[in-house]
Simulated assay, not measured.
Amino acid sequence: MESTSPVPMVGFGTWKMENTDNLYKAVVELGYRHILTGHYYENEDMIGQALTKIFEETDIKREDLFISYKLWGTQMKDVEGALTNCLEKFNIDYLDLYMVHFPVAYELDEESNPKQVKIPIHKVWENMELMVEKGLTKQIGVSNFNVQSLLDMMTYAKIIPQFNEIELHPYLTQEAMLRFLKKYKITPIGYCALGRSDPEKGINCEETITEIATKYGKTNAQIAMRWGIQRGYPVISKSSNFERLKLNIDVFDFELTDEEMKTISSLNKNERVVRGENLENCLYDEIFA
């Protein structure tokens, strides 16, 4: 079963979203149609309120949006329960994309300390496939899976992961991973598209990107977003600042040259923003080794 909604190339990321206003305005006023959500973000109720308001107050329909949701490590014992709970909170009937957030399952002990649980991914994936069969999600995928994990999945999966959401920006180009995903027709989704969020570091003050941005009358962030889109994958924009959200989707009126694309790619440092130590459970260090 394929989604009736194509994947929009700029998505609205809901990580650290603290109120309904930004999501509502991003969809209604700015034209965002790809909404990336996840249990770890702890804002399902808020997203549901925003979606309900959008559908009740505007002409935008459910089928106009591409809504994805990520299964967290504490939910892997009940894949269907996690999904139905999400749908209930979002007040919708299906997802466009349901993803496994990380290839690790865990639970919290009485003191809220994480303890890894031995749940094989092939068992989790069987249940993910069942969600497609039941019509609760149009497509299924993964996030933060490496090549080895994906190759293993291909030995047993009835439905090959249709997406892999990974960190992608000029300081982390992941060329080999992109070649692999293209070969097996797995669509990448690029998160952290702007690298570090600190306005005084990284892409925002990268001289090479600034020169290109000046040429097109764009910001460095817009150049980074456009670079990702021209590499062929959707990119996720996340900001609590409405003006930045407006700029981040305003990237379709120009095109970078082949030489500019190569120049930006040459900035690669294999530098990750997201690593195990940035996650409260600290179980994921080996994934990014």
Score class of each variant (00 low, 15 high):
E2H: 09
E2R: 12
T4F: 05
P8Q: 06
P8F: 04
G11E: 06
F12Y: 15
N19C: 07
N19F: 00
T20P: 15
N22I: 15
L23W: 08
V27Q: 15
G31E: 04
G31I: 00
Y40I: 10
N43A: 03
D45V: 00
M46R: 06
I47T: 00
A50G: 13
L51H: 00
T52I: 04
K53P: 04
E57N: 12
E57G: 10
D59W: 06
D59L: 10
I60Y: 05
I60P: 05
R62L: 13
F66H: 13
I67D: 14
Y69V: 01
L71R: 00
G73E: 03
K77E: 05
K77I: 04
D78A: 14
A82H: 05
N85Y: 11
K89R: 08
F90M: 13
N91E: 13
I92L: 02
D93Q: 14
L95A: 12
L95H: 14
Y98G: 02
P103L: 05
V104D: 02
Y106K: 02
L108P: 09
L108D: 08
D109W: 05
E110Q: 10
S112G: 00
Q116E: 10
V117R: 12
K118T: 04
P120Q: 07
H122F: 09
K123G: 06
V124T: 12
W125T: 12
W125F: 11
E126N: 08
M128D: 06
E129Q: 03
L130V: 14
M131T: 09
V132S: 13
E133N: 01
K134D: 03
T137N: 11
K138I: 02
K138P: 01
Q139M: 08
Q139D: 08
G141N: 05
N144M: 12
N144E: 11
N146W: 01
N146G: 06
T155G: 10
Y156F: 02
A157C: 08
K158T: 10
I159V: 01
I160M: 01
F163T: 03
F163G: 01
N164P: 12
E167Q: 03
Y171N: 03
L172W: 04
Q174N: 03
E175V: 03
M177S: 09
M177N: 05
K182M: 11
K183D: 11
Y184N: 06
K185T: 00
K185V: 06
I189S: 09
G190N: 10
G190C: 11
Y191I: 02
C192A: 01
C192H: 03
C192I: 00
A193R: 05
A193L: 00
G195T: 01
R196N: 15
S197D: 03
D198W: 08
G202V: 00
T208A: 08
A213L: 08
T214K: 12
I223K: 14
Q230K: 05
S237I: 01
S239E: 04
S239P: 07
S240Q: 15
E243K: 01
K246W: 04
L247H: 04
L247E: 02
I249S: 13
I249W: 11
D253W: 12
F254S: 15
E255V: 13
E255H: 08
E255K: 11
E260A: 04
S265V: 02
K269Y: 00
R272S: 03
V273A: 10
V274E: 05
R275T: 15
N278I: 08
N278W: 07
N278T: 10
L279Y: 09
L279N: 05
N281T: 14
C282L: 10
D285G: 09
F288L: 12
A289I: 14
A289Y: 15
